[in-house]
Computed example of a mutant assay.
Amino acid sequence: MLTELADTGERKSWSGYQASFWAVLLTFSGAESDRPAPGGPRPPSGAAPMQWSPDAKRRYFDSRHALREEVDTLAARATEDPDQHLAELVRLHRVLTVRSAVYWENRTHLFAERVRSLFDDGVGLARRLSQHDPTDGTRTLARILIDRSTFHTAACEFGPALDDFRQALSCLGEAN
């Protein structure tokens, strides 16, 4: 499908609701990396962000600022001691990326520009992890490449989506 889209583009102009479906799937797939604080409302799995309770939205989206600070602090530690901190940095960065992408998806038609650098930075971090820890890091790199591939697809950037998907398959040792 991505090969065809990359070659010919989308045949039909959509209203943009596909990105909303992508945001739901991204939230669902990002849940494995997320470790929400106990005691508060969590977003319901599989529900569009517009259907979340106001408390769940506030808690989920407002956490982006604290996550950004935590990612920035951990980045320095990961440079000094990658054995101890790099995998956690990659995990936290993915949480930040997912929350930011879901936040911006329905707020502006420029959502891709608001989160593109987060997806790119996440791939860069995952590449570092893959070089540092080829076994676990390579699987993580594949997952983050797939995240970025789905982002490119939601943004109707099918060539880059296909490239990332092929790289992910290669990381997993699958023919593409």
Rank of each mutant, 00 (worst) to 15 (best):
S33V: 07
H65T: 09
P49N: 09
P43H: 03
R11T: 00
I144D: 12
G39S: 06
G137N: 05
R94M: 11
E70C: 13
L67W: 06
R35P: 01
V71E: 06
S100D: 03
C171V: 09
S117H: 08
T3Y: 11
T153N: 14
E113P: 00
E113D: 08
V24M: 08
S170R: 11
R94Y: 09
A23G: 04
V115I: 02
R114H: 04
S130P: 01
R35A: 14
A19E: 05
R42K: 12
T79A: 15
R143I: 01
L86D: 07
R64I: 06
D147V: 02
G137Q: 06
E113T: 01
P36S: 08
P49H: 10
E69M: 13
R99K: 15
T97D: 02
D55I: 01
G39P: 01
S29F: 06
T150N: 12
A48Y: 05
Q167E: 10
T138N: 13
A142W: 03
R107N: 03
P41L: 00
D72K: 14
T73Y: 09
L125T: 04
D121Q: 08
G46L: 12
Q167D: 04
T73F: 09
A19W: 02
S13G: 01
A161S: 15
C156I: 07
Y103E: 03
